[in-house]
Design a protein around this nucleic acid. Structure first.
Lengths: 203, 203
DNA sequence: AATATTTTATGAACACTGTTCAGTAAAAAG
DNA sequence: CTTTTTACTGAACAGTGTTCATAAAATATT
């Protein structure tokens, strides 16, 4: 049955076109400025049409959220072949920091706004975030195995590194690092991350 | 001129009543659910009246933001008499973490949403946040002076502690710590904070 | 005390928003 | 060429923040 296939394909394409249009608007104007009516107008569709493909706005947010995680993950995977686990960890850190500072709205949607999360509260369908986190854990475990880090509790190390880097990025994105005079906040954050790695190596 | 005084007092009271009503709604229903029309209706005023006291919604957000910082600051000051600087630092950490987890909407407004910050971008009137930060820096400096911490760069130590604790709290508030199985996330966060302090003491 | 002036509050109007749903046009099936 | 299924529309609803001419209340002046 070729028609059903084509229809399904067209439906997927439509879904993706909606997401692309939404992502563009959202990346430009910000999280709360995203308007479904504007998305529909931009696509030359009626507002109601979007609801044939998504239950509501939050479901669109969740789909965007998912796509953003894939972007970050792809950047992560580029560095997975670095042999030395410590260098790999450093590359992951730099990538994460640079991604966050250069894609403020995407980062906001992924790690800060809670709308997409609450939508999914029931199901455990936040796999995307977990996969990204797992990449960090694997690299940290490799550092432990290579005896860079004396602390063998990988989750404890993961908690502190993940929180510190996310904390720095999100503070900067919301202009809460003004007490630090440095002109390049990206350098400040990278340096602090390196400092944390040094701490983890020494004890 | 007693009348002018009274009028000014009444205006301040009105302003405060608006903020109190807004704070109540906002704490209950969340950041983006705060509706000026509902605030006005609750106070039995017309919507337009609010605009005689505030330029717009963001100015109300900023005023609330300011009041929230005062609350946190008051809690901080309770611990300033603890003689040992390390114990003082620990108390500050516990207070911050507990405040964040128990006042999610307030914390959100203070450290996460950016609307109130952008409103004030021009002026340097984000004093409230800076004062709170300064309390942390002072305690950290005291720890350095008491030779608890070998690292003499207080801003570096401040950056890492502030970011880590903020990172943990904000991740938990937005349900992004699900990969950690612990049932009490508050304990997890406090333990990780203590772990960070241990790291800072050893090198 | 009566009038003029200033301050304060109103509520309709505007331009938006997400969401729903009866009705219609297009496509596929019979 | 009909019938049925699918895709889409656009008006309607209930909200939102914000503005502004108008009205009421409070104060100042005569």
């Amino acid at each position: 049955m070729g028609i059903a296939e084509r229809k399904e394909r067209e439906k997927k394409e439509m879904r993706q076109r909606i997401l692309d249009t939404a992502m563009e608007q959202f990346t430009k104007d910000g999280y709360d400025k995203l308007s479904l009516r504007k998305v529909a107008k931009e696509m030359e569709y009626s507002p109601g049409t979007l609801y044939l493909h998504f239950k509501n706005k939050d479901e669109i947010y969740y789909a965007l959220h998912d796509q953003c995680f894939r972007l970050l993950q792809d950047e992560f995977l580029k560095h997975m072949q670095i042999p030395d686990p410590l260098d790999r960890l450093r590359a992951l850190g730099r990538t994460y920091i640079s991604f966050g500072l250069n894609n403020p709205e995407k980062y906001n949607l992924m790690f800060i706004e809670k709308a997409p999360m609450e939508q999914i509260e029931g199901q455990e369908t936040w796999e995307c975030a977990k996969r990204t986190f797992d990449i960090l854990v694997e690299s940290l475990q490799a550092c432990i195995d290579a005896e860079y880090f004396p602390n063998k509790n990988v989750m404890q190390v993961a908690m502190i590194t993940y929180s510190a880097v996310h904390g720095m990025v999100s503070l900067e994105l919301h202009r809460h690092l003004k007490m630090f005079p440095e002109e390049s906040k990206e350098n400040l954050i990278n340096d602090t991350n390196e400092y944390l790695i040094q701490l983890l190596m020494k004890s």
